[in-house]
């Protein structure tokens, strides 16, 4: 009996040790890029300039309130797990992403793995970006590389234990992160609907704020875009789909598109909080066609509550 217990304990320790080694083992962030794709290809920076707006990179990677430089990061993001500080994504070689290869950049954006193989916290919304097309991710890198290189060291996150242990993100991913899969068009749906779906799901990462999260910070299954009572910076984020989206369901496509352009709500109220920033630094720069595509897709969700 005692011998069996001893073996059981040994097996437990070995298993726990194995888990720890697995967690701490650096990930292979490098992704195999399809031949011919490169951020250095002609036209990529221009394409990226638009996508950086569509992905609303600036509101997070710019500590505007404290006089920071564009894309130099440092913005404080308060969450229930502690405070994150966004990183510098300017082309500075030492403190930014100037020395990153294309594969490393795509690995971070779509796999959530840093340049040294470290796990990235899902505050970088790679859970959405993972659905981004690789050429779009590369275009974003191309645009960022044209920006001013700002020497601004990244500030370490101030997270509570155990979230401060970065290796745990590997376990989190095992539970909540799907294999990277760029979104493909749904046959039988309009081009506008498919474009809207891509912008909402992958690039615009709308669900990251507009969905509720569980205690582990993962999106609650079956509640995609159902609103988040505990959104960023303590804001309640409204539902865009599901049973709580009654008010939004009353907006017309044109009203949604106009809101994304101007921040004007149909009831004469205006966008505020984090969404006002997303509009000011992102959505207002999109084409009318893309804003209508977003509306097209969102309306297809809000009119079928619970989907």
């Amino acid at each position: 009996m005692i011998a069996a217990l001893r073996w059981f304990l040994i097996a437990g320790v070995v298993f726990a040790g194995g888990v720890l080694v697995w967690l701490a083992w650096p990930a292979t962030g490098n992704v195999d890029l399809p031949a011919g794709l490169s951020s250095a290809n002609p036209g990529m920076a221009d394409r990226g300039a638009y996508l950086v707006r569509a992905a609303a990179c600036l509101p997070c990677h710019w500590d505007k309130k404290n006089g920071g430089e564009r894309f130099a990061g440092g913005r404080e993001l308060k969450t229930p797990f502690g405070t994150f500080y966004t990183p510098n994504i300017t082309p500075d070689g030492e403190t930014g992403i100037g020395k990153w290869s294309d594969a490393e950049f795509v690995g971070a954006l779509t796999h959530g793995v840093g340049r040294s193989g470290e796990q990235l916290y899902p505050t970088l919304p790679y859970t959405s970006y993972t659905h981004m097309r690789i050429e779009d991710a590369l275009a974003i890198k191309a645009y960022l590389s044209t920006q001013n290189a700002v020497h601004h060291p990244n500030k370490p996150h101030a997270l509570s234990f155990p979230y401060s242990w970065r290796a745990l993100v590997k376990g989190w991913k095992l539970l909540y992160f799907d294999t990277p899969q760029p979104l493909t068009d749904v046959p039988g749906r309009s081009a506008s609907w498919n474009r809207g779906r891509y912008l909402v799901t992958a690039v615009g990462h709308c669900a990251e704020c507009h969905s509720p999260r569980d205690l582990q910070g993962a999106l609650v299954p079956g509640a995609w875009l159902h609103g988040n009572p505990k959104g960023p910076d303590g804001w309640k984020v409204p539902a865009l789909a599901g049973p709580g989206a009654k008010e939004f369901a009353g907006w017309t496509n044109a009203q949604i598109a106009n809101y994304l352009k101007s921040g004007e709500e149909p009831n004469f109220d205006s966008a505020e909080g984090p969404m006002a920033e997303v509009i000011a630094e992102g959505m207002k720069y999109l084409t009318d066609e893309d804003r209508l595509a977003i509306a097209d897709y969102l309306k297809s969700l809000s009119t079928t509550p619970g989907s």
């Binding site: 303590g234 804001w235 309640k236 505020e272 909080g273």
Partner: peptide, 9 residues
């Protein structure tokens, strides 16, 4: 709203 209204909650 900017001056006299707080965060949505």
């Amino acid at each position: 709203h900017e001056t006299y209204r707080g965060k949505a909650k």
